[in-house]
Simulated scan of single mutants.
Amino acid sequence: MAAILIIDDDAELCRLVADYLAMDGYQIDMVHDGVSGLSKAQNGHYQLILLDIMLPGLDGLSLLKALRQQNYCPVLMLTARGDDIDRIIGLELGADDYLAKPFNPRELQARVKAILRRVELTNQDNNQTAQILEINQVKLNPRNLQVQCRHQDVSLTSTEFQLLQMLMRHAGQLVSKEQLSQQVLGRRLQQYDRSLDMHISNIRKKFSQFASDEKIQTLRGSGYLFLRGLN
């Protein structure tokens, strides 16, 4: 049974969402301010956090930034429709996905299932037969979910890890945005959705701390490929 934390100051919406998700068997906790939400997120054992941007005490973006310093639990941001800047900043800070309010409960259910399924598949790879990938001075170990660049640890969110793993498994080959969206984000690619671009940008920024050469190449309008380079 997956445990989900909802951090949102709209108590009525929280109850409605909790009731809806509880029908799928999830265990739900709710917090209505940012300070309490950060404490709960840091000290609890959750498989997913639903995080509103507008919160009293500590806003959602500040909460996410603080959380990502030591916790990589998947985060689904809840944003006001049209707040593109907040979504972009949230993805830059390490959110796994976002959903604009007001949202259809079925869409929320689908996003939650997609994220939890991705986490489950990642955990299934955590076994002695999982293939360690080492390409272009990047090492990805599914057994312990560890990534290194030039022997330096790189901390990735679960979404970033899955994207990198898929690209490295197809190193030297184009992987389309549609393939990445369907297999990693769990949904069809939508027009104007920049989620993939932001996740890839985050991975590049983290690699750039340890290596100046390009690891992931963008083929505009098509997708991405992980460069084989020279080990």
Rank of each mutant, 00 (worst) to 15 (best):
Q165H: 15
L108T: 02
L163V: 08
Q191T: 10
L55T: 09
Y46W: 05
L180H: 02
D10T: 08
K113C: 05
L63V: 13
Y20Q: 11
Q173T: 13
M77T: 04
R194L: 13
L58N: 00
Q179L: 10
I49T: 03
Q162I: 02
V147M: 12
K40H: 14
S208R: 15
H151N: 10
S36V: 14
K177R: 08
T79A: 11
I88H: 12
T122W: 01
V112H: 00
D193C: 08
S208P: 03
P56I: 15
S195Q: 05
L185Q: 06
D29F: 05
I89R: 12
T129F: 12
Q109Y: 02
Y72W: 08
Q173N: 06
S208Y: 12
V31Y: 08
K101M: 12
A22W: 04
F207T: 11
L227Q: 11
C14N: 15
L116K: 01
C14S: 15
K177G: 10
E12Q: 15
A2E: 07
L50G: 04
Q179M: 09
L167D: 00
S36D: 15
M54N: 09
T122Q: 02
G172H: 01
K139Q: 14
S181M: 14
Q70V: 08
E12G: 03
E120F: 08
D97N: 07
Q162H: 09
M198D: 02
I216D: 00
E12K: 10
Q128G: 03
K65Y: 10
N43R: 09
Q152Y: 13
M166K: 15
D83E: 07
S176W: 06
L174S: 09
